[in-house]
Nucleic acid binder design. Sequence first.
DNA 1: CTCTGTTTATA
DNA 2: AAGGTATAAACAGAGT
Length: 645
Amino acid sequence: MKNDYKMTTDLGILEEYLGTATAIAFDFETAANPLWAHEKEAALDAHKAHIVGISLAVAEHSGIYVPLRHVSGTNAAPLEVMAWLRQRVFENPAVTKIVHNLSFEARFLLAQGITLVPPVYDTIAGAQLMLKDEQHFRGLRDAGLKGLAYEWCSLWLPSYGETVGTGSFRDLDPADDATIAYACGDADLALRCYRIENAWFAQNIPAHEALVRTIESPVALFTALMEHRGVLVDREGLQAAADAGGAQLQSCRQRLENSGSRPVRVGENAATNDVKAYLFNDLALPVLKATETGKPSVDGEAISLLLAHCREDHPEHLDFLGGIRDYRGLAKLIKTYILGLQQRINPVTLAIHTRFFPLGAETGRFSSQNPNCQNLPAGASHGVNVRDFFTARPGCTLVSVDYSQIELRVGAWFTGDPNMLGVFVDGGDIHALTTAAVYGITLSEARDKSHPDYKERRAVAKNINFGIFYGLYPRGLKRILAQKAGIDRSEAQCAAMIAAIHQAYPKLAAWQDEVKWNARYRETVDTALGRRRSLYGINGPDENTRAHFERAALNHPIQGTAADILKLAMVRLYAGLAERPYIHPLLTVHDEIVFEVATERLAEAVAWIRGVMEAPPFAGFDVPLVAEAAVGPTYGSLQPWVDEA
DNA sequence: CTCTGTTTATA
DNA sequence: AAGGTATAAACAGAGT
């Protein structure tokens, strides 16, 4: 079938093309601004690039291209076209905007002061929620438009490289057939993907259609807000930490290299073959822990075990072993979190623009890259709190709002356990209830902070609560208590504690059995909203693999439903942000959203955000949600927000 | 250079 | 008998 692609600079012709369509696909061609032309990926950064042209499609095999900023040939008037499209398409609630990789286009619009208004549909999110074969969902890598065009439509779309060569899209002649075909092809294909995806969902996983339309697509807009604004960085502080850390790291490493009975080549993070040879050959220490592949481990836990082993009989080895820990901690801090962060500062905004991937995890959680801001150290180490380098802009305050114990609340809802539900409905303390159950004491004793065992008991209870939903076994509990809380319990004691939990929460075990049974039967597992995860391998021959997928089956509904709840909150927040321009989302960390708020409107902003996040997430979810706010000038200095009485 | 494995940071 | 789940970044070492 012949494609009807055309180019125009005339808004009348564009209007005629759009007609009465209620679903419009569009795509931007972009190019780096001259200052950044030498930088490889600058055309993808809305702070370093501009829109060269816009293609739109309202029917399959058709499309129209509007050139705005080509170097030669005729362009339309860019500002006039943008203003017109803003009303007619981008902010028109009567039009469904269809885009492949929506957050990219949304960022370029934000750079123009335009905020997309739902309904929207992101065909890349749709592709990722489809199966690419019998067992596997499509990853971001397999969701490129060119690949989908070939897979679904047997089309060889010209690649960007083939069309543009080594130059930039703005150097192409907008009247050239190849230019028009490339630009219109992307909009046309986005529209065709939209139709193909919806037909597939209707046939195969209807819940995923609703997920893409009502959650993932608007979430892409929220993602664009976070990515585009970025977090301002304290560059002086970071530089000072880098200067101090460099020297500190150097001397720490030298000390370690010379603290053994012979010089040891320690490398960058004290995990070289020479370190292992020194420990296990020269010193002939026993291998107390193996890695996944059965080789001698020298990770933190292994070093702990070796330290304990040497404490009495070989105190001469303690310096070296302890030195490994110190050096690793310092190296991680400086290399990943100080030098790593410095490299990611955008020179245009002087801020860090983390990339967020809303479908980065199989459970539906976000992942974050360049830098990963979801694993920043939570406190100070070696005198540095990395989060202090993330700062509010002048006149603004950082506000972090996080869901309190959301996974336990979701777990209570799934199991329907009356005791767990009771705690949350009454606004009680789940860790105290677990403490009471595990130690066989009364609730008031469990809550008594003056009791000498309070801290230890609570630490045990917390670890049990976090692990219990995911098939934590006595041996695992023993390890976690030793490692995370420094508490030594026998395997039998751990087994007794787990048994006590099942007594205290009588519907927990039944729910777990049912989930596992269903998981093995269906080889998939769903969240409350039908977000599906493949468990291909759960019935395979390997016992470890089977056990792994069983635990994943227990985890997915809880972690995934918690992720759904967070994303639903983002959708509601997005709807209210247009009329609250003093609130800017910056980051999200699984059960937390960080905002930058104009300080003079802090109180009303916090109240509104908490209200939106605590609203019932979906019909039938009747466990109260609690969103706790903390505010401050830096991410490292947030203080709990307390409502005025 | 790419690829796998190890280690460590978070929720 | 029995490896809580989900991630990303940096480094080590082996192979291409």
